[in-house]
Design a protein around this nucleic acid. Sequence first.
DNA 1: CTGTTAGCGCTTTCAT
DNA 2: ATGAAAGCGCTAACAG
Lengths: 345, 345
Amino acid sequence: MGKITGGATRIEDVARVAGVSMKTVSRVFNHEPNVRADTRAKVEAAAKALHYRPNPSARSLAGHRSYLIALVYDNPSASYVMEVISGVLDACEPARYSMMVRPVKLDDRDHVELVAETVAQYAPDGLILTPPLTDDAALLRRLDAQGVRYASISPKTANARLGAHLDERSAVREMMAHIVSLGHRRIAHVKGHRDHGATDWRLAGYRDGLRAAGIAYDRALVVAGEFSFESGAAAAERLLALDAPPTAIFAANDDTAAGIMRVASGQGLRIPRDVSVFGFDDLPMARQLWPALTTVRQPSRAMGRIAAEQLLRAIRGEAAGMVEVPYELRLRDSTGPVPTHPRRR
Amino acid sequence: MGKITGGATRIEDVARVAGVSMKTVSRVFNHEPNVRADTRAKVEAAAKALHYRPNPSARSLAGHRSYLIALVYDNPSASYVMEVISGVLDACEPARYSMMVRPVKLDDRDHVELVAETVAQYAPDGLILTPPLTDDAALLRRLDAQGVRYASISPKTANARLGAHLDERSAVREMMAHIVSLGHRRIAHVKGHRDHGATDWRLAGYRDGLRAAGIAYDRALVVAGEFSFESGAAAAERLLALDAPPTAIFAANDDTAAGIMRVASGQGLRIPRDVSVFGFDDLPMARQLWPALTTVRQPSRAMGRIAAEQLLRAIRGEAAGMVEVPYELRLRDSTGPVPTHPRRR
DNA sequence: CTGTTAGCGCTTTCAT
DNA sequence: ATGAAAGCGCTAACAG
């Protein structure tokens, strides 16, 4: 019946068996100092024997803390969110925190209210924000006003003081160097959604890459997108119809790359023989595309874990900050040498 | 700071302003009977004016219930789980319940212990199980022993008394009828993972479809799979190498279908001109495959919501059961008329 | 380093 | 239909 009472042993039982006070048991379980090692051992033995588990409700009621953190997301991609969820849980378990999730739609007028409502109702000790919510000024303002602590994953601005990020700009720059080394000079870019910070970082990396190779920036080769399959497809229609089409296309993310690949294949082009395509994220689907997609892997699960760890450190009053995590280039089959006889229309 | 105390108004404040006792406020908030309409109105007005929100910890500590349900999954597919999460949250909100998630790996030796541990620690009022955990005998036995209530989504056996399911067998039978109407007679099937109930239902539907069309069951056309892209690819290699290859392939799910399509395309076959392919699930990727995949849509979000609703009804002591939800056939571009001149190897 | 006391905010039980 | 008192299991504040 999920009853809490009944068989459940309480802190009092542990105290009696261990021959100490309730408060001492509490100290042991909360890793507080000022407990002799042998006392600690006695308590731990008693707790183990009795299968004692602190009651979370009592703990938070008496402690004026919820021991809860809320993950807020506007589902950019299911696999991304699932990875982040796993990472946050990885951090919560050893800290004896629990996690709740709060999906919101950035486009809904009242999304700030929805988050504020969750905060008011459940009083989480902190929030984890995923992009693009990390850069939603109205939301951040409200959270600051409410005095809610939050950690950001891949925020756009350097303002965010807590969380995890990846040097996307350098990652793209590095990937561009690889593409250039394959002989490409006409490299296009399909940008991400306006509101996402990643859009800017990835564009900056693209420009860095061009500059490093001494290639002029060509506006005609940079088209809008919105991190979606559909926007990739639309962008590809335009790019491939140019008089001098690109020999390589950098998609702002893997979904976009999938859309590009579909259109290119649909036009009878072979990848990478006729055109190279590369993305960013390394979603599971990247390996399932045909050919398998060259992309940048970001360790989403680790980023979720690290962001949560930093948040928990801040909650405990320990030093915490914004942590940079490493990326990896995944060079697969969707990129290859530049065509020797460029296609002309 | 996420502080619970401080500005937070308590039930006592509401009682004072409304001029009633704490217990009456409690009655109103818990929808208990025996409150006069005007008293109820007074309480609601006071609560609204004070922005009162019951403290979840106090509520569950005093009430001996956690007002929490746990969603347990072994990530069959990220988008599936995300949909189910959304559905469960849809049901939780109006009921003032919260949801926690507990990912487990069926292959881990101790997965039953992990779930039992979560139950012992958080005392959720119930669990939601997703496949294939719905059919894990060891887990179910343990939960029954612990006296934990649970609702199942798409369980294999009809034993499950609570939850939501879909008539997968009829869905496949109906899809088969459509394929047969396109002229196909050599229809192959790539099965799902052994442990999943869906594997059996979908195979049964396939056989029903053959029988209805007067087509003999051909063992050579039914190959093992495990609901994955890779298993689909492997199965396709075998099926397409047959002396008399199938003209249509029913993949047990969309991931499998994607693997089949990749191999078929890789061999230079055109879909559906040379071979038709259809799946089951209607994941978002189904529309992004090229050509777009014909498949069966199951309303995962609604199923999550309904399973949670039934669970909550059972928790409240109301009548609840296993609810069947409707499916939809999504006829897209990966299926077409049977080739007039069948390929021969 | 350890213990005592009070009380977190709510629901229960029992009374009226 | 409504209320008063007790107490859920734990931690805070203080005492020693």
